[in-house]
Design a protein around this nucleic acid. Sequence first.
DNA 1: GACAAGTAGATGACACGTCAACCATGGCCC
DNA 2: GGGCCATGGTTGACGTGTCATCTACTTGTC
Lengths: 157, 157
Amino acid sequence: MTEEPRWLTDREQRAWQAYRRMFLLLNAQLARDLGQDSGLSEPDYDVLSSLGAGPRHRRRISDLADHMLWSRSRLSHHLARMEKRGLVVREECDTDGRGAIVALTEDGLLTLDQAAPLHVESVRRHFIDLLDPEQIDAFAGIGERVVNRLAPTGDDG
Amino acid sequence: MTEEPRWLTDREQRAWQAYRRMFLLLNAQLARDLGQDSGLSEPDYDVLSSLGAGPRHRRRISDLADHMLWSRSRLSHHLARMEKRGLVVREECDTDGRGAIVALTEDGLLTLDQAAPLHVESVRRHFIDLLDPEQIDAFAGIGERVVNRLAPTGDDG
DNA sequence: GACAAGTAGATGACACGTCAACCATGGCCC
DNA sequence: GGGCCATGGTTGACGTGTCATCTACTTGTC
């Protein structure tokens, strides 16, 4: 007992508890919806939509990893699983012999197009539509504050 | 294109993005701290602290699962791993032949006592202390609203 | 007390994520 | 152009989480 730790106050405790439970339950629910609606996991959807958003539905792998804040290893593993299911394909990179490119397959694109609106609805139903405009903005502010402290791409002073 | 989905507005998009990234980065950071400080994963810590909080540092397994909002399967798997490491032990339940009880070992209790203040500091550093009191309360309100819609133990009207 | 239905918990198979190790190429420097 | 390190990407091992299934016990009913 050399340094008294600053425990959490009741209000802080409440916020912390809210954080824990919200993510636990919300993630679970969104994953459930996504799986039932489209047969995708959340990571699947993230990959598909990140690819779908870019030009020509393809992207350099490390670029994609950086954009998604995923480790290269994680992405590599996940792409392997998705490639096996025919959602994406790997291609060679002309300009860098080490590099590789992932592209949506037709099937991947179709799946994404079908999944997207349902997923948006799910996000609305379980999260966005529960909050009033002020809460939306407040949440964005809070999240960005936390992220800016942690993100490799922001100054963390 | 039978039903036009209600896409997210920019502000909603911002909140949603904040949610995703906050969760991703904050969890990763807390897990990293916890692992380095105490050799525990977040789930490890959750189990230890839930046990430590109760009387006699022991608890009925299903009771613990309900409290933590974990599936019984998940808890069972995790307890197996923790038992192997000597942090907890399973005991028989006197009043219910099916049941089982988990208890902290001495080692588990010691580990928890050492981990707790460091973990609290980590939570403060990366989350709580970044927010002003209004944000704390706002966040708690948002989280509870979302949770109350999803929690099995709340009415979801 | 026997039998059906439910509950507590464990288990196996599989998807996911991390870490460390690895291989290949690229870029640099002399 | 040979040596060296950095980078892009993959792989293997392992811890974690989910679902479905299974066993054992309890409870209720007759």
